[in-house]
Computed example of a mutant assay.
Amino acid sequence: MRTLFVVGGLLVAAAAQASAAPKAPVQWHVKAAPKTVKPGAKFNVTITGVLDPGWHLYALEEPQGGPVATEVALTEGDAADLIRVEEAKPRVLPDPLFQQPTGYFEGSADFTLHLQAAKEASATSGLRILVKYQSCNDRVCLPPHTDTITVPFTIAR
């Protein structure tokens, strides 16, 4: 009887794992960020998307009728304003799925956010960076997805 419960438990666990959402092919990390920022100061944060082999991520600007371009933004109420976003130079090649040249990254993609700390921010603050992106391989594109990256830092007077 005990064996039946163990086997039944394993089957339930396997079914739950099979129905769980698949792992996204892009994992986001903070590559560089200051630990302390003065109120009103300009600073940079660099994030990196690490892509699974065979997958690619699109650039910040894409042609009409092409893939969904990557978008980087901050959440409402963050302790800084986003001035601009820079990306590493993407590869530009004909995309077989969209049948036109697209800019994309393979392996990894770095994005540098140029920011300005709020002048009236609380002593302990941070950022929540939103990255909306579409990832594709040579056969299929996943629907656009938004990930949140938390960047802790302190506003010091």
Rank of each mutant, 00 (worst) to 15 (best):
K35G: 14
S122T: 11
A117L: 08
V26C: 03
A21S: 11
G49Q: 04
A79V: 04
E86H: 13
G103R: 06
N137R: 03
G103M: 05
R139Q: 07
P101Q: 14
A41G: 04
P22I: 05
Q134I: 02
V68G: 02
T36G: 06
V68A: 02
P39K: 03
T75L: 05
Q100Y: 15
A32Y: 00
L93V: 14
A33H: 01
G66E: 03
L93K: 13
A21L: 10
D95Q: 10
C136Q: 01
K38N: 07
P34C: 02
V92M: 10
D81N: 12
A109D: 07
D138Y: 12
Y104V: 01
G54P: 14
T70N: 05
G107H: 11
V45N: 02
L82A: 09
A109S: 09
L51F: 10
E106M: 09
Q27M: 04
V30G: 07
E86A: 07
H29G: 04
V72Y: 05
Y104F: 15
W55N: 01
V131D: 09
S125Q: 15
A88E: 13
F111L: 01
A117M: 04
N137I: 07
G107T: 12
A41P: 00
D78E: 13
Q99I: 06
S135K: 06
L60V: 10
L130C: 03
P96E: 01
L127V: 10
T75D: 05
L142I: 03
Q134G: 04
G49R: 02
T148S: 07
E106R: 05
A88Y: 11
Q99R: 12
A80K: 10
V92I: 15
E76T: 15
A69T: 06
T146P: 09
A80N: 08
N137G: 06
P94V: 10
V92D: 09
A41T: 08
F98G: 07
G40R: 01
V72W: 04
K38P: 00
P25Y: 12
L74E: 11
A121C: 08
A117G: 10
E86N: 08
S122N: 11
S125G: 13
P96K: 05
D147I: 07
F98P: 15
K42G: 14
Y133R: 08
I149R: 03
F111D: 00
T102K: 08
T36M: 09
T148E: 11
P67S: 08
Q99W: 09
T36D: 09
E62S: 12
P143N: 13
F111G: 04
A109E: 00
A20R: 07
A73Y: 02
F43H: 06
V131C: 03
Q99K: 13
V72M: 03
K119M: 11
F98W: 14
P143D: 14
A73V: 01
L82Q: 05
G65A: 07
L130G: 10
V50E: 00
P143E: 12
Q116S: 11
V45Q: 00
L57V: 01
K89V: 15
Q64R: 09
A33S: 12
D138G: 13
A73G: 13
A59C: 00
F105L: 01
G65I: 05
V50W: 00
A73H: 06
A109K: 03
G126T: 00
P34D: 08
K38W: 01
Y133N: 04
